[in-house]
Simulated scan of single mutants.
Amino acid sequence: MKKYSLVIFAIVLASFTMNAQQYKTGLGLRGGLANGITVKHFIGEQAALEGIVSSRWAGFGVTGLYEMHYPAFDTQGFFWYWGGGGHLGFWNGNDAAWADDDQSYTVIGADGILGLEYNFSEVPLNISLDWKPAINFVGHSGFWFDGGGLSIRYLFR
């Protein structure tokens, strides 16, 4: 009975290991309506922190996210993820499409994220596509549905 228990334990442990992310940190570029730099760092088997510095409307924003990753499509290298966090942004009203005055804006808000990620096994790169809606609580309040992006990262394993 002990032999069977040990074999079952080894199989379960191996299945969790195979589902783990294949890198520790990724650094790269993010494109979309807001373009910028992204860094993602895993703090556990499935949990990661992502930081994004982006530019839009002649201003910039900083976003911090906590994300959970899970295997997708029963395909090695594919993962889906979701999470949330917050942002801080600075814009000039003259350059923002949504502003109707000449004042500058400092905004603080919350973000969600839902996406797919693929880690290439041949080269230390990954690509991700996500939707990142946001809501501003301070500054110009409002809900933004258009926060999606495509990211390409160099992976540090």
Rank of each mutant, 00 (worst) to 15 (best):
residue 5 S to H: 09
residue 26 G to T: 02
residue 68 M to V: 11
residue 66 Y to A: 15
residue 20 A to W: 06
residue 127 I to A: 11
residue 151 S to F: 00
residue 82 W to P: 00
residue 10 A to T: 12
residue 19 N to G: 15
residue 117 E to M: 08
residue 137 F to L: 14
residue 25 T to L: 03
residue 90 F to I: 13
residue 118 Y to W: 12
residue 56 R to M: 10
residue 78 F to L: 08
residue 84 G to Y: 05
residue 60 F to Q: 04
residue 122 E to K: 14
residue 51 G to P: 04
residue 99 A to Q: 06
residue 75 T to S: 14
residue 68 M to I: 11
residue 15 S to H: 08
residue 145 F to Y: 14
residue 66 Y to R: 06
residue 60 F to A: 13
residue 46 Q to V: 03
residue 107 V to Y: 03
residue 13 L to K: 02
residue 73 F to K: 07
residue 60 F to K: 01
residue 42 F to T: 01
residue 141 S to L: 01
residue 1 M to C: 04
residue 130 D to R: 02
residue 119 N to Y: 07
residue 17 T to F: 08
residue 129 L to W: 10
residue 152 I to S: 00
residue 148 G to E: 07
residue 77 G to E: 08
residue 76 Q to A: 13
residue 75 T to Y: 10
residue 5 S to I: 10
residue 27 L to W: 02
residue 99 A to F: 05
residue 67 E to K: 15
residue 93 G to E: 03
residue 25 T to G: 02
residue 17 T to Y: 10
residue 76 Q to V: 11
residue 38 T to S: 10
residue 140 H to S: 11
residue 136 N to C: 05
residue 23 Y to K: 06
residue 83 G to C: 04
residue 61 G to D: 09
residue 21 Q to A: 15
residue 151 S to N: 00
residue 21 Q to G: 08
residue 120 F to P: 01
residue 151 S to V: 00
residue 54 S to E: 15
residue 144 W to M: 07
residue 69 H to R: 07
residue 27 L to Y: 03
residue 132 K to M: 14
residue 15 S to R: 06
residue 103 Q to H: 10
residue 45 E to Y: 08
residue 72 A to R: 03
residue 38 T to A: 12
residue 53 V to H: 02
residue 145 F to K: 05
residue 71 P to F: 06
residue 152 I to G: 01
residue 45 E to H: 10
residue 113 I to M: 05
residue 67 E to I: 06
residue 17 T to H: 08
residue 67 E to G: 02
residue 51 G to Y: 12
residue 18 M to W: 08
residue 50 E to K: 09
residue 4 Y to A: 14
residue 23 Y to G: 03
residue 86 G to V: 06
residue 77 G to A: 09
residue 4 Y to D: 14
residue 149 G to D: 05
residue 27 L to M: 12
residue 74 D to T: 05
residue 71 P to I: 07
residue 15 S to L: 13
residue 98 W to S: 12
residue 1 M to T: 11
residue 115 G to F: 03
residue 62 V to M: 06
residue 74 D to M: 06
residue 151 S to R: 00
residue 132 K to P: 01
residue 56 R to H: 13
residue 8 I to Q: 11
residue 144 W to A: 04
residue 102 D to H: 10
residue 51 G to A: 14
residue 89 G to I: 00
residue 153 R to Q: 01
residue 44 G to M: 00
residue 117 E to I: 00
residue 49 L to H: 06
residue 145 F to R: 05
residue 141 S to A: 10
residue 66 Y to N: 06
residue 40 K to D: 09
residue 81 Y to L: 03
residue 112 G to V: 09
residue 72 A to S: 13
residue 41 H to P: 01
residue 42 F to E: 01
residue 13 L to G: 09
residue 134 A to Y: 07
residue 57 W to S: 13
residue 96 A to F: 11
residue 42 F to G: 01
residue 5 S to N: 12
residue 64 G to C: 05
residue 102 D to V: 03
residue 116 L to S: 05
residue 27 L to E: 01
residue 5 S to F: 11
residue 2 K to P: 00
residue 75 T to N: 12
residue 64 G to P: 02
